[in-house]
Write a protein that binds this DNA or RNA. Structure first.
Lengths: 160, 160
DNA sequence: TATTGTTATACTCTATAACTATA
DNA sequence: TATAGTTATAGAGTATAACAATA
């Protein structure tokens, strides 16, 4: 391995990757930051055999007993068909139940079981620590600003 | 459809989804915001037949002629195997070329073609408009704060 | 007719192991 | 032996169309 400089001008050896075009873009940083969050959250939830989506569904059912699948899909911002397997998994593990809604026999009222609430309590504690870990390096002002900015973008979805 | 109140206490009809547990979590908002950005970006890049990943790769090759695949994968924060199909696609469309590096015959020096640079120019313009669209509602301070916060999280990847 | 949940399907992104050809 | 690129593969998330049961 030669360390000496090549005499050929064609060998444009890139030593430091230049990203001046990309680094201005919010989406670029959002993706990278989200990947970090997602990877750490996955690791955090693994001991509970939960993923981001199953955890989110469990949390929302804990906080909203009687929720219907269509409402949950809407709240989670995913399509109804994609929620089915998530609910299937939580139900198979007996963390939630699908109760029939007497007034509308098409729908299910989603409720947690005791085991579901207990798992939620333990997982929520771990997630809380995960959050603290991620927020290291951000002061309260930055943190508030970040969440506010994310909410603004989140609500500004393209209309048409 | 009865609108009158049911006498059964069991029918806990959820009218507004409560998300007090989730809304505190940065990852939750990050995901939702990222989905909005990603969806709008996909729509923006569609006319150019580019996706977020192919666009990012093209941009980085434009800015770093001679870049190697391993460096690009590293810069894009994806695994080397996943980059191969992206480079394949850009090469098939003759937007970039894989040049052999004379000093290391294992590696490729990635370079854009004229068509690649021209497509980049047009796409970058559209992406710039997409960014402006997303940032509507955020003043300069919030925007700077958002990017700074994302970078902090991005760099604070879990060590072990 | 419209809606709830469902099935089936397809596409994208991500992650790992193992191979080849070079170094 | 280590590295660059590749192949194969599997898992997860996302999106749409179409169906049965019910409203």
């Amino acid at each position: 391995m030669k360390k000496s400089a090549s005499k050929s001008a064609e060998v444009t050896s890139v030593t430091h990757v230049q990203d001046r075009t990309m680094r201005k873009l919010v989406g670029y940083h959002m993706k990278r930051a989200f990947n970090v969050v997602q990877a750490d959250l996955a690791k955090t939830l693994k001991p509970f055999e939960l993923r981001m989506l199953t955890y989110t569904a469990l949390v929302l059912i804990v906080d909203n007993p009687g929720l219907r699948q269509s409402q949950l899909a809407d709240a989670m911002d995913i399509e109804r068909p994609n929620l089915v397997v998530i609910i299937d998994e939580l139900e198979r593990r007996e963390l939630i139940v699908r109760d029939r809604v007497p007034t509308d026999r098409r729908a299910y009222a989603l409720k947690t079981t005791l085991a579901g609430r207990q798992l939620f309590e333990r997982a929520a504690q771990a997630v809380s620590e995960h959050e603290a870990r991620l927020m290291t390096g951000l002061d309260d002002t930055s943190r508030d600003c970040l969440i506010a900015a994310l909410k603004t973008i989140e609500n500004g979805r393209t209309k048409g």
